[in-house]
Computed example of a mutant assay.
Amino acid sequence: MTKDNYLDIAKIAIKAMDSKRGEDIEVIKVSDITVLTDYFVIATANSNTQLKAMADEVEYKLSEAGYEPHHIEGERSEWVCLDYIGTVIHILLKQQRGFYQIERLWEDGEKVDIDDIIVKD
């Protein structure tokens, strides 16, 4: 898989989460500051039901595109992490996102402009 695939994975995940009304979706390119992954995609869900729906939709849409997760963590919790090696997708309930502030941990990364991917109301 190439680095272009990692950005494609992020874009597909963004569209999937946006279709389920995910909020505050952000993408941070971290390939220059860590070997863990190339991109973090972070989104907020307003309920456990929405969180599960978003995670399921991401997994479904990525599988449709030929991408399978390396690992999934927290499927029955308040924070789901879908690891696609070069792209790691975090979906958190609002309270957990505020508490963990993942964006602040990776603030040295490069925020990716996703305005052309998100559907505006």
Rank of each mutant, 00 (worst) to 15 (best):
T2I: 12
T2P: 11
N5L: 14
Y6G: 10
Y6H: 15
D8F: 07
D8E: 13
I9K: 03
I9E: 08
A10D: 00
K11V: 07
A13V: 03
I14V: 15
K15T: 07
A16G: 10
D18H: 01
S19W: 05
S19A: 11
K20G: 00
E26W: 11
K29L: 14
V30Y: 11
V30N: 10
S31N: 15
D32F: 12
V35H: 08
L36Q: 11
L36S: 11
T37V: 04
D38E: 14
D38P: 04
Y39S: 05
I42Y: 04
I42Q: 03
S47P: 03
T49K: 10
Q50G: 01
L51F: 00
K52F: 00
A53G: 06
A55H: 04
A55I: 02
V58F: 05
E59F: 01
E59Q: 04
K61W: 07
L62Y: 03
S63G: 12
S63P: 06
E64W: 09
A65N: 04
A65T: 02
Y67D: 01
E68T: 10
H71Q: 13
H71C: 04
I72W: 00
E73S: 02
G74E: 00
E75S: 03
D83I: 10
D83Q: 07
Y84F: 13
G86E: 03
T87R: 09
T87F: 08
T87L: 05
I89P: 00
I89V: 14
R97V: 02
Y100K: 05
Q101G: 06
Q101I: 03
R104I: 03
E107I: 11
G109V: 00
K111D: 10
K111W: 10
V112D: 05
V112N: 04
D113G: 12
D116K: 11
K120N: 13
